[in-house]
């Protein structure tokens, strides 16, 4: 009976901290990007098609990031390796979009460069901790 009650705690606290702070950071990042696009649209000779493309990609980025954080949060706290694996899989398009905003958009401000660099640091740590946590979940025998 004592053995049955001993369910080991496998959720990763550092990963949960990163997800929580990343959620807040991405909210601030999104607001800053919207304001910077307004600034660039007004001040700089931004082509209309490029501006629409960049804003639509930003909204796509918001959707993917929300999906990723939800699955990561849920997977880590409920100890489900499949949900956490989905979170790590969605990390790849999020990183691609971040690199796009870092290097490839029409006008890149210095502030955008630094903000995306910090976001990529978040993604690196979450990738490492996510893979470690998935392996811990898969290895454990819970009964």
């Amino acid at each position: 009976m004592l053995l049955l009650n001993k369910v080991s705690q496998l959720s990763s606290t550092p990963l949960q901290i990163l997800f929580h702070l990343n959620g807040w950071y991405f909210a601030a990042f999104f607001i800053a990007e919207i304001l910077m696009f307004i600034y660039k649209g007004v001040i700089l000779p931004y082509p209309q098609a490029n501006l629409i493309l960049d804003v639509v990609l930003l909204l796509l980025f918001l959707g993917l990031e929300t999906l990723r954080l939800f699955y990561g949060w849920k997977g880590n706290l409920c100890q489900r390796s499949l949900a956490l694996f989905v979170s790590v899989a969605v990390l790849v398009p999020c990183a691609v979009l971040s690199v796009y905003y870092l290097l490839l958009q029409t006008f890149v401000l210095r502030l955008e460069f630094v903000l995306n660099a910090v976001l990529l640091c978040f993604y690196s740590f979450e990738l490492l901790l996510g893979l470690m946590t998935i392996s811990v979940f898969s290895r454990a025998n819970v009964y």
Binding site: H20, L21, W24, Y25, A28, R110, L111, V114, L115, V118
Partner: peptide, 22 residues
């Protein structure tokens, strides 16, 4: 307080890195 502190810390860090450039 925890996310507010983190966001102000990162904002300060971002501005300091920007000052390196300008």
């Amino acid at each position: 307080l925890v996310p507010a502190r983190f966001l102000t810390l990162v904002a300060h860090l971002v501005i300091v890195i920007t000052i390196f450039w300008s």
